[in-house]
């Protein structure tokens, strides 16, 4: 371990903030990874409560079923790294105001479920907060085919994508691929925050 590099990174991350839209399989796992590495502040947005069927891929525990995802994830993050400041917003992102919670963050992570919501979110963020890098994800359903996942960058939009994946409406959502793509998003966030010095 390069201690000097590690200290330099920690310092930079402590001063950084990341907003996450949606705390399902993508958002909960990305948030935990970002918390582990010591991001200064996380803004977490979701309206949903945890269901037992979420536990096959989302970062929650059996005894948290029925709780709001925002509150449960804040608890879990604090168990991992209490130094992370966690701002939770317990509401549904509405069309026309999707950018509202994310005006004061360094990077935004799209971690929503339906294609329609993803599209509207990306459009609104790119239109209303064009200077904040946005990391989005498309094609998490299924298993295997890890090698099809790619990062596509268009300006300030970084898309973690498997173009040939099926919609989750016609396929399954399972931890290995969902967590892979959640951490792919978190890894892009890290690259954006830390810049070229790898």
């Amino acid at each position: 371990m390069n201690i000097k590099k590690s200290e330099k990174i920690s310092k930079k991350l402590k001063g950084s903030s990341v907003g996450i839209a949606g705390l399902g399989g993508l958002g909960s796992n990305a948030a935990i990874s970002l918390a582990r590495i010591g991001i200064g502040r996380l803004v977490l947005v979701d309206f949903d409560k945890i269901e037992e069927c979420n536990l096959n891929r989302q970062y929650y525990f059996l005894d948290q079923v029925g709780k709001y995802k925002t509150e449960a994830l804040k608890e879990n993050i604090q168990r991992v790294n209490p130094s992370v400041k966690v701002d939770i917003k317990n509401y549904k992102l509405n069309k026309g105001a999707m950018d509202n919670p994310f005006h004061n963050v360094d990077v935004i992570v799209e971690a929503l479920d339906s294609a329609e919501e993803k599209t509207i979110f990306i459009e609104e963020i790119m239109q209303n907060l064009p200077n904040i890098p946005l990391v989005a994800c498309s094609g998490t359903a299924g298993y295997g085919n890890s090698d099809r996942i790619k990062t596509k960058q268009i300006g300030n939009l970084y898309l973690c994508q498997d173009k040939d994946a099926r919609s989750s409406d016609d396929d399954v959502l399972l931890a290995p691929r969902v967590c892979l793509m959640a951490n792919w998003e978190a890894n892009i966030v890290l690259e954006i925050l830390l810049g070229e010095d790898k």
Binding site: L26, L112, D113, A115, S138, G139, I154, R166, L173, V178
Partner: peptide
């Protein structure tokens, strides 16, 4: 031109 098509799942 970039045309991006989002697929459900999260």
């Amino acid at each position: 031109i970039a045309v991006i098509h989002m697929i459900s799942g999260g």
